[in-house]
Nucleic acid binder design. Structure first.
Length: 421
DNA sequence: TCTGGGGTCCTAGGACCC
DNA sequence: TCTGGGGTCCTAGGACCC
């Protein structure tokens, strides 16, 4: 059996832990630049606010006091997530962290009763120890566990834990699950399925496999099998990420290569830092630019360029330099850029980097690596941009992001801890 | 006026090989 | 007018997830 542990309204719940006055109120958390709604409390869901709604469309509710608004505070959410995950990791032999607010528990060889007791105790323990409410769905496959967790969340009668452990329960759950709520069926496929008469998960599993394969290929068949109770989505093995991306929208549109260089340098430096954090290195550095796709009155341009390094690197200088080269290739005067980003790819473990025949100066890389290491050490002591490259100028990549309703760093800042005392 | 960020996997089609 | 057969690898684009 698998259990899916899902934090309820996660970002909102994190905010509420430190500001209990938000309890019982309609609350939303906004994306970067206070752009879109990315998390909602039950109350704000009930008001009809949809996931991804641009904030300006609901800001009148905040102005009139009917809606509480938080800018996103990912440092806080990351820390709260780590707390929840550590409680889970202590409770079972195998856990797969699926996202910031979800984890699968692999419950091989455990009886149903024990699973039930364990999950119930986890719900209350996580609430007491971290302040975060969670729902747990238990089933023979991950796709069914997802469905079970929806029921656990939706109906208070389950007290946070729903188990699909008999054929009867499975069929009933499938019949009550709209097709668009199934894991693996997204906003493109759902309308097509409904059009061909598949409205619920039950309709889906009742179609013959050949029909599924013909229309929805391998992915569709996997979902079909999983809903029927056959495990198809394998247990994850620990593996390094294949790409790392840092990108941001700008509060104001940028027009000069100079301004963009500063941003791109910062994004690239972030990517390099993440590589070092994970003990990996990359050979591909891609820079991309977006104009403002919502401004249909303006010329649009979405270019990207990739620079391939002869030898995998993770030091800030090399990654930034490649990202700036790529920027120079794609930059065109006359457009107004709303967003830029850097992706590093073709990632390998840093300790098994293949040397290149064309690497003209391995000594320089060694020096750069040492310098990056020292920058990491200095920057880890508080100000994360204390030491940076000149090309990053005075900026910090998050400097001019709009964040008008941000909570404090309650759980991670030394200043806050002192203040609380 | 104002519209996020970070990932993965699969497939089709083109380029190439013999 | 007619123009083979069987592979591999890479990439772009599209689907999905949170």
């Amino acid at each position: 059996m698998f259990a899916l542990v899902d934090c309820n309204n996660f970002f909102v719940s994190c905010e509420r832990v430190f500001r209990p006055q938000l309890e019982g109120k309609a609350v939303v958390v906004l994306s970067n630049n206070d752009g879109c709604v990315v998390a909602r409390s039950n109350e704000s869901k009930a008001m009809g606010i949809r996931m991804g709604t641009p904030y300006y469309q609901v800001s009148h509710l905040a102005d009139s006091g009917r809606l509480e608004v938080c800018s996103s505070n990912y440092v806080l959410y990351g820390d709260m997530s780590a707390r929840v995950m550590s409680v889970l990791a202590d409770a079972v032999p195998k856990i797969e962290i699926y996202s910031i607010d979800e984890a699968f528990l692999v419950l091989d060889g455990m009886g149903k009763e024990r699973i039930g007791t364990l999950c119930a105790s986890l719900v209350s323990k996580i609430r007491r120890w971290t302040g975060i409410p969670v729902s747990i769905g238990v089933a023979p496959t991950k796709t069914l566990a997802k469905i079970a967790s929806h029921f656990a969340k939706k109906f208070p009668g389950y007290k946070g834990v729903c188990m699909i452990d008999t054929e009867e329960k499975r069929m009933k759950a499938l019949s009550l699950t709209p097709i668009e709520e199934v894991w693996g069926v997204g906003r493109r496929l759902a309308p097509k399925l409904v059009e061909s008469g598949v409205r619920t998960a039950l309709d889906y599993v009742e179609r013959p496999e050949s029909w599924i394969r013909e229309h929805y290929m391998l992915h569709g068949v996997r979902t079909w099998m999983e809903l029927r109770g056959t495990v198809c989505v394998e247990t994850e093995t620990e593996s390094a990420r294949k790409s790392i991306c840092t990108s941001r929208s700008f509060a104001d549109m940028l027009e000069s290569e100079d301004e963009l260089s500063m941003k791109v340098s910062d994004f690239a430096a972030q990517c390099a830092r993440k590589l070092r954090e994970e003990g990996t290195a990359a050979t591909e550095v891609t820079t991309f630019l977006y104009t403002n796709r919502f401004r249909t009155d303006l010329e649009q341009y979405f270019p990207s360029a990739t620079i391939r390094l002869h030898t995998a690197a993770s030091n800030t200088q090399e990654i930034v330099s490649a990202a700036l080269q790529a920027l120079h290739v794609i930059f065109r005067q006359g457009y107004r850029y709303k967003k830029a980003g850097v992706t590093v790819g073709n990632i390998v473990p840093a300790d098994s980097v293949q040397a290149s025949l064309f690497d003209f100066d391995p000594g320089l890389r060694a020096k750069n690596d040492r310098l990056s290491k020292i920058m990491d050490m200095m920057n880890s002591r508080g100000d994360s941009s204390l030491l940076r490259l000149a090309s990053q100028k005075g900026g910090h990549y998050a400097a001019d992001i709009r964040r008008e309703h941000c909570s404090r760093r309650y759980s991670t800042s030394l200043d806050e801890i002192i203040e609380v005392k």
